[in-house]
Amino acid sequence: MIKAILYKEWIKTRYLFLVVAVVLVAFTAYCQLRIGNVISLRSAAHLWEILLTRDNTFYEAMRYVPLFSGVLLALFQFVPEMQQKRLKLCLHLPLPQNKIIGSMLGFGVSLLIALFAATYLIIFLYLNPILAPELISRVMLTMLPWFVAGIAGYAFVAFTVLEPTWKRRLLNILAGVAFIRIFYLSGYAEAYNQVIVWLLIITLALAGLSFLSVSRFKDGVQ
């Protein structure tokens, strides 16, 4: 049954998956082209110097791409469920409610993590021959909050879309905006090093907020 649910989720999101993958690759390629230009027009030393002395990572153009990926994925996954209350049908499947919703959320979060991990791998493979490990970790640690924000965006959009009342939806949107703002508060390189693991754990835990919305939906809150 879970396999069938996962397949249903894949059917809903496969085109978006492709679009998001293309957008992530395109933005990564754009940033890497800029790095390539610095090396060819100036020198690798100039690139190292910028990374050593400024808060620039050359991947700033990607700042909001993971967030939009997460938001779009949640919309594509859960808006169809809420149209004509199809979620009701889903909840009537012979499986515990939490397992059904858990599978749907798990699918979405896993898809995002897979996309983000692939992007990270591309970035690492590109930077590895040209930068020292200290600078690669600086770039990747500076970018990490943006990717966690993508998961947070997914979690809060799912939470909001699955919510049955508009009043509570508004509250969820405001809470989501405030929570996601946290990931963009500091523009300094490696600013989030001390807390990024905790932020990731909290964000993954908050992905379960949708259980609250679904429970209210099932209770018939209007």
């Binding site: 809470a175 405030a178 929570f179 908050l206 379960g208 907020l209 259980f211 609250l212 429970s215 209210r216």
Partner: peptide
Amino acid sequence: MSKTYKIIYYILLTAILAWLL
């Protein structure tokens, strides 16, 4: 599960207000 998340959401909103207000 939803009871736990009610409390988690309440804590989250409290923390957000302790920051934003």
